[in-house]
Simulated assay, not measured.
Amino acid sequence: MSPEEKPAPVTGAGRKKRLSRELVLSAALALVDAEGLDALTMRRLGQELGRDPMGLYRYAENRAALLDGVSELVLNELSIFPDDPDWQAQLRHIAHDLRRLALRHPNVVPLLVTRPLSTPLGLRPLGTLRPLEQILSLLIDAGFTPADALHVYRAYYGYLYGHILNELQEIIADPDENEALLRLGLHRLPAKDFPRLRALAPVLADYDGAAELDQGINILLSGLAARLSSPDAQTSD
């Protein structure tokens, strides 16, 4: 059956589902998960929902709004508890939660990493700003000055997104690669020019994304805890 012939979603005795913003965005996210960002168009989404694409503009004024909505939908799955007194445990939890979301929705990651750069902060969808507001609250309540809390947020998310992009590259670049092939490939490198990389072959072959994330978070949080305990290191408001 071609996309044009795809039946409309139904409820009850063959009735179409009532459209809502949540339903439209959920279908858009499912389409992106299955086929990538380029597949998401109003026309294609209308086919997926069994509706006239023109009717979707009531819920998203254009494709850009759809992309923003998909970002919000994914970030709404992120669990953040800004009132948690254990700020370090909370940052660890958020890091692993964001990693799980990225692995669940890898095609959405470019939206989360690069799309905000093209939009002024105050004009971004509120759902994409909520994690920033919540983490700032968590850090300020922990004792960081507002300015330092912002610096921490930037360093924290910079590390997280860097880790996620690196892990996705490990997964996507060679999904069928096994340990023996990886080691064999690295051992072909000239020993004189790549001694460190060759020596790390077993570690690279045994890549564990969750453990690697913890290693980086440990380093980051240790430095932040030391900074928080040193009044001289705090900047003024």
Rank of each mutant, 00 (worst) to 15 (best):
M1T: 08
M1E: 08
M1K: 01
P3L: 03
E5G: 00
P7H: 02
P7L: 04
P7E: 04
A8P: 00
G12V: 10
A13Q: 11
G14L: 11
L19V: 08
S20F: 09
R21C: 06
E22I: 09
V24S: 09
S26I: 00
A28H: 03
A28R: 03
L31H: 12
L31W: 09
V32G: 07
V32H: 07
V32D: 04
D33V: 13
A34S: 15
L40A: 07
R43S: 15
L45G: 08
E48S: 14
E48T: 14
L49D: 05
G55E: 15
L56I: 08
E61W: 14
A65D: 15
L67F: 14
L67G: 11
G69T: 09
S71I: 11
E72H: 09
N76W: 12
L78P: 07
L78C: 10
I80W: 10
F81C: 10
P85I: 06
P85D: 13
P85F: 08
D86A: 13
Q88V: 13
Q90V: 01
Q90M: 12
Q90K: 04
H93Y: 08
H93N: 10
H96S: 12
L98R: 06
L101Q: 05
P106M: 01
P106H: 00
N107M: 01
N107R: 03
V108Q: 03
V109Q: 01
P110A: 03
P110T: 02
L111C: 04
T114G: 03
T114D: 06
R115N: 04
L117C: 03
S118A: 13
S118M: 09
S118T: 12
T119M: 08
T119P: 01
P120A: 09
P120Y: 07
G122D: 11
L126H: 05
L129C: 02
L132M: 08
I135H: 00
S137D: 14
S137A: 11
L139G: 00
L139E: 00
I140V: 15
G143P: 02
P146S: 07
D148N: 12
D148W: 00
A149R: 03
H151V: 14
R154W: 13
R154G: 12
Y156K: 08
Y157F: 15
Y159N: 09
Y161W: 15
Y161D: 11
I164R: 05
N166Q: 15
E167C: 14
L168N: 10
L168S: 06
L168G: 08
E170A: 12
I172Q: 15
A173S: 13
D174Y: 14
E177F: 07
N178I: 02
E179T: 11
A180H: 11
L181F: 04
G185Y: 06
G185N: 12
L186Y: 01
H187W: 13
R188W: 06
L189W: 01
A191F: 01
P195L: 05
R196C: 02
L197R: 06
L197A: 07
D206F: 07
Y207K: 14
G209E: 10
G209H: 10
G209N: 07
E212P: 03
E212L: 07
Q215W: 08
G216Y: 05
N218H: 01
I219G: 02
A225I: 04
L228E: 02
T235R: 04
D237N: 12
D237L: 02
